[in-house]
Design a protein around this nucleic acid. Structure first.
Lengths: 225, 225
DNA sequence: ACCTGAACACCGTTCAAGT
DNA sequence: ACCTGAACACCGTTCAAGT
């Protein structure tokens, strides 16, 4: 029997206990993490749980909803949180970094996260980020621009850095060497070099965008005088 | 006969002229643009050209290569170019904006562009961008960081802004209203509001990241003294 | 209420056969 | 050289039937 089998048998061999929504979401997450997003099929999920593929439809309307639930579980498991101490800017940076770490641990979910929004986690993220940006002094259209800019940066960067990891990054590494520019010599030697560069680039970009948010906040203060 | 049929018949009704690689790439691009990326199947492509699905494999090793060729055609058709006049910074910004415009015209390619790199266009883009960043005074590791930051921003933002457009953006619009924060009231009223905001956000972010590049260049100059 | 089994309308890709 | 036809091993999803 497969190690991932979760079907609970009652002690006297009666009908097995019904599977929960969460059991399906967890199994889907495990398949995505271990075998890649493309390996998640209804049939593969059924096999994992010792159940027919179509049993999933008792718990989820379609595959989109299943993946959304897997994303929810991923955010719970990875502990995406905002630091409790520090300046609003530092706490915001901490939240965005904790999102990046979550996708570093679950790279195969970075691509679906572009188009499948986990409603629950998104609402929570948005509210926290808005609160911190307001503490930084932003409001009105500038507040929305600042939020949207950071969300786009976070989601876009996670997708590009972790999408089809490590295959896509390896292809990009080979592409760099194809350019034939000495600038890439050192940073494209190994996959680890590429990953380290991505991490550094992420920090430089994040700092720059948070600077822009502070700058917008300062301009709004000046306007009030 | 479908309007998209390209099979050329010889004047005396002999065997039809063989289809070119480019004909397949063009037809693939047309299907992606008109019916969405998911609608591109080998069978749909064959139908479009009045040919069996498996005929594609005479010209492309697999679907990945076909989509790569469609991306190449898209870049050619859209005229992605760098402005000839202006400061290095302005020319670089112009190149990145012209990329964004290309995906605005062909939104269904923004998502595949994350993982399927068009080798030819990428090498050209990298060389041009490196040249302009060098003119801005960057070199060494700072040059690579600056380049990587701008590429990630461009690819990531295009994917998030145009991926599954307009469905994904409409879902995001509804998500914004679900948050129940007055900050989003105006900007999430219609899809046009969301698109306008994205365009503005893109410019604010681009300016900020180019500022960071100039700042890195200045720090390098100081180090030399 | 939860799962099975059969079925439908699809996929990408391979390979022998035609011309 | 280029395309056809049949086939293989898959997909997501629906729906009647079982328990």
């Amino acid at each position: 029997m497969a190690s991932g089998t979760v079907t609970a048998m009652s002690s006297r061999g009666e009908a097995p206990a019904p599977l929960s929504r969460e059991a399906f979401a967890d199994a889907a997450l495990a398949i995505i993490d271990e075998r890649g997003y493309d390996a998640l099929s209804m049939r593969a999920l059924g096999d994992e749980l010792g159940v027919h593929a179509t049993a999933v439809y008792r718990h989820f309307a379609n595959k989109h909803d299943l993946v959304e639930a897997a994303l929810t579980r991923m955010f719970e498991v990875s502990g995406v949180t905002v630091p409790e101490a520090g300046t609003p800017r530092d706490r915001l940076a901490g939240l965005i970094r904790s999102l990046r770490r979550a996708f570093a641990e679950h790279p195969n979910l970075a691509l679906p996260n572009l188009t499948i929004q986990d409603e629950q986690a998104t609402v929570e993220f948005v509210r926290t980020a808005l609160h911190l940006l307001r503490e930084m002094g932003l409001r009105g259209r500038e507040l929305v621009i600042a939020y949207q800019m950071l969300e786009t940066y976070s989601v876009g960067t996670n997708a590009y850095d972790w999408g089809y990891y490590p295959d896509a990054l390896e292809a990009r590494r080979r592409g760099r060497r194809l350019v034939g520019d000495e600038a890439f010599d050192e940073v494209s030697r190994t996959l680890a070099d590429m990953t380290a560069l991505n991490d550094e680039v992420f920090e430089v970009g994040l700092r720059s965008l948070l600077d822009a948010c502070e700058e917008m906040s300062r301009r709004q203060d000046d306007q009030l005088r």
